[in-house]
């Protein structure tokens, strides 16, 4: 009996690993693994996607041994603060709100957001055209936004929870729509394809990936491509506030990847277009 307890305690202690701050030869990176083509999971059970390739690239530049940790989206920032990993690379946009609790590296990619609906839906009549920068609203973009609002009035709109898309729906559409928050982008896409929600707001790249699949081929974008404002200034690496040395390392590595063109390569490979920045 005693022996059993000792082995149990020894086992528990063994699984407790200790790491020291300031030594960045080993970096743990948190990602979601449910947001293709940024970061998805393949049938071999391995993480894959543009950001996964980018992690390998950046870590080689930083001479660090990196370990990827899968973490559900809605706990991804608290788990960073808790020390479950040291950096987030999960298609996370750089926003004011998040900057209050964590730091971001420079942005490495930027992809506009758009609403999508079923082709058979009456909302599809709006068509997909134009671009709106929420930071610089001129007459033309205000008009585009207004017709978007008018079309969506009374609709049920789905978003992934805790995202910039959720913020946009809350701030800009407010009570004129019914909002539903999903745990993952993939579940949002599933519910759009079966018609449980009238429209979904997400970044175009991940929805385009779904549109290639059997279930997603009946989905189209509507309205303008959206960026700026609540959507933030591109996607960057999320870091704890006090890890400024790690921030510098990431910035330098991203500079390097941008300079020799590999940054663009990773995104072109997964998105079919260059969304790097």
């Amino acid at each position: 009996m005693k022996k059993y307890f000792l082995t149990l305690i020894a086992f528990l202690l063994m699984t407790i690993s200790a790491a020291y701050a300031g030594d960045w030869s080993k970096i743990k990176i948190g990602t979601e693994g449910a947001y293709p083509p940024w970061n998805g999971t393949n049938a071999a059970g391995e993480l894959e996607g543009a950001e996964i390739d980018l992690v390998r690239d950046l870590c080689a530049r930083m001479n660090a041994e990196c370990e990827l940790v899968a973490q559900d989206w809605d706990g991804i920032i608290p788990a960073l603060q808790n020390g479950k990993y040291d950096a987030i690379m999960a298609g996370m946009s750089i926003t004011e709100e998040r900057m209050q609790v964590i730091n971001f590296s420079q942005g490495y990619a930027n992809e506009p957001a758009s609403f999508s609906v079923l082709k058979s839906s009456s909302l599809a009549a709006l068509g997909h055209s134009g671009k709106v920068n929420m930071d610089a609203l001129d007459g033309k973009s205000k008009k585009l936004l207004n017709s978007l609002k008018k079309t969506l009035k009374g609709a049920t709109v789905g978003v992934q929870g805790s995202t910039t898309h959720e913020n946009f729906v809350k701030q800009v559409l407010g009570d004129s729509v019914t909002m539903k928050s999903y745990d993952t982008q993939e579940n949002l896409e599933l519910d759009l394809s079966v018609g449980r929600i009238d429209a979904a707001l997400s970044d175009q790249g991940s929805m385009e990936k779904f549109m290639e699949s059997d279930k997603g081929k009946k989905i189209v974008f509507i309205g303008p491509g959206l960026g700026g404002g609540p959507f933030g200034g591109g996607v960057g690496v999320g870091l704890r506030k006090n890890d400024t040395d790690l921030l510098k390392m990431f910035n330098k590595a991203i500079d390097g990847a941008r300079a020799d063109g590999t940054l663009a390569e990773h995104f072109t490979k997964w998105f079919g277009k260059d969304i790097s920045m």
Partner: peptide, 22 residues
């Protein structure tokens, strides 16, 4: 599954998301 441990439920969740076959 919410802790990220890949047990039956998380694996099913991942696979259903990735293949759109819940």
């Amino acid at each position: 599954m919410v802790t990220g441990l890949v047990e039956i439920m998380r694996q099913a969740h991942i696979a259903s998301g990735s293949t759109y076959s819940p």
